[in-house]
């Protein structure tokens, strides 16, 4: 499905009664089956945008439209969370089957689908473990398995690899590329890593500081299927430098704003 974000604004009330505008009149379109990365300075409202797309909050102004026939059996979106959000008292398999459980899929079928997705993520051996028994990387593999097993139209990923160590992150990025090449879901992937965005995305949307707007959209030129070798492409370095130039001032401005307590 195509996502049209049309002049969306979102703010929060401050303690002193005034309003903090986080997302300010943001417009962009994400095509069906496109992999889009969103980067922006910290605190710029990336997560607020994700909450809006995930149906957890409604915009103060403008609207978000999901356009096209429903092709998946599951919810409109499913989120892969930065801190995994696995249910601690459930086994990994029961976590992965949670989305199916919510829409009344019988237990036997749930187990089957869960096992399929656990195998796809290479963690079928941990089906009966509890989340706290797994490493961060394993937990996020389970998080991705849950999101895909729910069979959404759109996959929303909120800095999914920010909490794992650098080596594991590399593995997870490669695995995501592989898995995505099979599923081809529409993906909106939030990150603060320029390299990650260049490796994964068809298109990169650069957001500015609060109130967030789209600063620039860049098409990533590397062909698919992609591997880590894109990092050796001279265009990679060039784009990286360009994106950092875009982000640098905004990041500094965000740091100043935070130091002044304007959160």
């Amino acid at each position: 499905m195509r996502i049209e974000i049309d002049n969306v604004a979102k703010g929060y009330p401050r303690a002193d009664g005034s309003r903090l505008s986080v997302v300010g009149s943001l417009s962009t379109t994400i095509e069906a089956q496109e992999f889009v990365c969103v980067i922006g300075p910290s605190g710029c409202g990336k997560s607020t945008l994700l909450g809006l797309l995930g149906g957890l909050r409604r915009p103060d102004d403008g609207e978000i439209r999901f356009v096209g026939e429903r092709t998946a059996a599951g919810p409109l979106t499913s989120i892969v969370w930065q801190d995994y959000a696995l249910i601690p008292w459930r086994s990994i398999a029961d976590n992965v089957g949670f989305g199916l459980e919510l829409r009344g899929v019988p237990a036997a079928r749930r187990r089957e689908v869960a096992r399929e997705h656990l195998t796809m993520m290479g963690i079928e051996a941990f089906a009966d473990n509890k989340p706290h028994e797994l490493s961060g990387g394993m937990r996020q593999r389970a998080g991705i398995a849950r999101a895909l097993a729910s069979d959404p139209e759109v996959l929303l990923m909120d800095e999914p690899f920010a909490a794992v160590d650098a080596q594991t992150r590399t593995l997870l990025q490669d695995e995501l590329l592989q898995v995505w090449s099979k599923h081809r879901k529409t993906v909106l992937f939030i990150t603060h890593s320029i390299e990650e965005a260049l490796l994964l995305a068809d298109r990169i949307i650069v957001l500015g500081p609060r109130p967030t707007r789209v600063v620039e959209e860049i098409r990533v030129p590397f062909p698919r299927p992609r591997t880590r070798d894109v990092e050796l492409d001279p265009r990679f370095t060039e784009l990286k430098r360009h994106l950092w130039a875009q982000l640098r001032d905004a990041t500094l401005a965000a740091e100043w704003a935070e130091a002044k307590g304007d959160r």
Partner: peptide
Amino acid sequence: DERLILMARNLGA
């Protein structure tokens, strides 16, 4: 955990 509630709501609970 509020995040678990958000997670469930996102999946249609």
